[in-house]
């Protein structure tokens, strides 16, 4: 397609000197004006709802008055940054965010891979399809319903988990009021919801592995384990690396909505993360500038994490996002 279009341009513009470059651009725009016209609405959307809020982070350096300009007026410099950097609550939520993100990444990351590998080994196609279909279900369910399921299952008075616990130990645990249990609940429910969905990408990667490799390995006498070790895993390694980079980049982005639905002052000690703290500071206490300063800090750390993960992966495995 590309080649043909360029050819046309060559025919229409035989003199390819520098002067005609501008003319060429103009001509290209005129030729494609209908395509450009399609872009107007979506680009306006990006400008208004993505780039203006990005600029709006300037509120972190300004004092905000209700009824005043949207993004504040009076310049106060780094005041709000100094404020949260010396706020012990901030450092607690920062620590929680990092621990929760790291634990979730390390524990949940292998699940979709193993699940995809096991699915790939199923011989009955109907059973395989059924298992896959069922495994996608939780991904489509509202986090509100997932939270309610957790609350019902773990209810100290009537939840099935505590019924079983009581049967065996005689005691019950009020899971959602215990800081020590929060991370486990968060991680297990996250795996429950996303394992099947996460496996799709790996299944796609698995189906791209050349079957001749397996045939050759079988002729060479490789057993199942050796096939997986020397063909399958290397075959899906680039996919694993890309997803690992993306997940590291998202390390600080906890499942904000789920936490908001499941945490309470009793579990703040472990459950409160940057985004929930920011939410309370901003939207419940109306400290917009303070919350925006925290938000900016969070975004920049996310960007640095992504860049670093990408760089390391590029050096080590030659796989990268850009």
């Amino acid at each position: 397609m590309n080649v043909e279009v360029t050819n046309k341009e060559f025919i229409e513009l035989p003199s390819m000197n520098e002067k005609s470059n501008f003319k060429k651009t103009l001509k290209a725009i005129r030729k494609d004006w209908q395509l450009y016209s399609l872009l107007i609405l979506p680009l306006a959307h990006y400008l208004i709802f993505r780039y203006i809020p990005m600029y709006g982070n300037i509120i972190a350096f300004r004092k905000y008055y209700p009824g005043g300009p949207v993004y504040g007026s009076e310049w106060v410099g780094l005041r709000y940054f100094k404020m949260f950097l010396t706020d012990p609550t901030f450092w607690n939520v920062f620590k929680n965010t990092v621990i929760l993100g790291l634990e979730y990444l390390v524990i949940s990351f292998p699940f979709p891979i193993v699940f995809a590998l096991l699915l790939n080994e199923l011989h009955n196609q109907l059973f395989k399809r059924f298992t896959q279909t069922v495994s996608y279900l939780p991904h489509f369910i509202s986090v509100v319903i997932v939270a309610e399921m957790i609350i019902e299952l773990l209810s100290p008075s009537r939840g099935v988990v505590n019924i079983i616990l009581k049967h065996f130990t005689g005691n019950t645990i009020n899971f959602l009021a215990e800081p020590a249990w929060f991370r486990t609940i968060y991680i297990v429910s996250g795996i429950w919801q996303e394992m099947g969905w996460g496996a799709i990408i790996y299944l796609a990667a698995l189906s791209n592995i050349n079957p001749e490799l397996y045939e050759a390995a079988i002729i060479d006498g490789a057993n199942k384990w050796q096939q997986i070790r020397y063909i399958t895993i290397p075959g899906i390694m680039p996919t694993i690396m890309i997803l690992l980079i993306l997940n590291i980049g998202n390390l600080m982005n906890s499942a904000f909505e789920k936490i908001l639905l499941l945490y309470n002052p009793l579990t703040y000690e472990t459950a409160d993360v940057i985004s929930t703290y920011l939410y309370r500071m901003g939207l419940e206490m109306n400290n917009f500038s303070y919350a925006a300063a925290i938000g900016m800090f969070e975004s920049i750390i996310g960007l640095i994490l992504l860049g670093t993960a990408n760089y390391i992966s590029k050096r080590l495995t030659e796989t990268s996002l850009w």
């Binding site: 208004i48 990005m54 709006g56 985004s275 938000g295 900016m296 975004s299």
Partner: peptide
């Protein structure tokens, strides 16, 4: 410009105020 918004966003507070 479009892809950049995947990696860096304005965040909750500025969007809410807007």
């Amino acid at each position: 410009l479009v892809v950049f918004t995947m990696f860096f966003s304005g965040g909750l507070i500025p969007t809410y105020l807007l």
